[in-house]
């Protein structure tokens, strides 16, 4: 599914990713852990095509298609979804309007019919209820004045409604209370399927107790420096990153 090979990328003239390679097969969930500033968010922005993140070497493909050649919205239409570490506020645009516009844009790009207004509302009610989001909140401007945890829940709601094929969760667990963490994890697990792949970036084992990964990778100094099974996350929690940071340096 996702195949990243020897990826080098610069931000503001600094090389942040320095030969990162990663394979996430369809049906699997891979976790990425690593120290602050290691390049985890950078990887998520490079994969989604944010301006200012320049790839200088290497490749990234989804099901064999070159992701790096596509515009951000084309990647989204192929099913790439990023749950942002810091979701943006969109003044003046009700959450419902934003999500409907996005969903219909994706559907048009794939040559599908737009969803009708009643079908869309039904879907929104159903998904919001599942995530314990008050439906009235979806009438407010997206993320404006929302608490940190509410913003993260709203990311998962958008994910549930857009039903992407490849999910990148960038620290979706940070800022969530214990109940919200479980609700969000249930939302993510509901999307696990043989056709979908996921990359879960986190600092904490706690999220991985709910979303069991098939593999765990350590990202340090712009590279994957170690990979293993779920037990690697436990080991990191106990020992920290010191030895990997030395290895990366």
């Amino acid at each position: 599914m996702l195949s990243v090979k020897d990826l080098h990328a610069t931000v503001g003239g600094n090389e942040i990713l320095k030969g990162l390679s990663l394979e996430v097969p369809a049906g699997q969930v891979h976790a990425i852990m690593g120290p602050n500033g290691a390049g985890k968010s950078t990887l998520s922005y490079v994969l989604t095509g944010r301006d200012g993140y320049e790839v200088t070497q290497g490749t990234a493909t989804l099901d064999g298609e070159d992701l790096l050649a596509l515009a951000p919205d084309e990647r989204a239409a192929r099913g790439v979804f990023l749950s942002f570490q810091y979701p943006l506020e969109i003044p003046g645009v009700p959450a419902l309007t934003f999500i409907r516009t996005a969903l219909n844009a994706q559907r048009r790009a794939r040559g599908e019919d737009e969803v009708t207004a009643p079908a869309f509302l039904k879907l929104a009610r159903e998904k919001a209820a599942g995530l314990k989001i008050d439906f009235d909140m979806l009438k407010r401007a997206l993320n404006v004045g929302f608490s940190g945890g509410e913003k993260k829940r709203m990311e998962i709601l958008q994910m549930a409604m857009l039903s992407p094929r490849f999910l990148i969760l960038d620290e979706t667990d940070s800022g969530l209370d214990i109940d919200a963490l479980r609700i969000v994890a249930d939302g993510v697990n509901a999307l696990r399927s043989p056709e979908r792949g996921m990359l879960v970036i986190t600092h904490y084992q706690r999220l991985l107790d709910y979303i069991t990964p098939d593999a765990v990778h350590v990202l340090a100094g712009g590279r994957i420096v170690a990979s293993g099974g779920p037990e690697l996350a436990h080991q990191l929690e106990a020992e920290g990153y010191e030895r990997y940071e030395k290895a990366a340096a």
């Binding site: 301006d51 919205d73 989204a76 990023l82 942002f84 516009t101 996005a102 958008q158």
Partner: peptide
Amino acid sequence: FYARQRGMS
């Protein structure tokens, strides 16, 4: 970028 990541041109 946020809007485009969600699929809008």
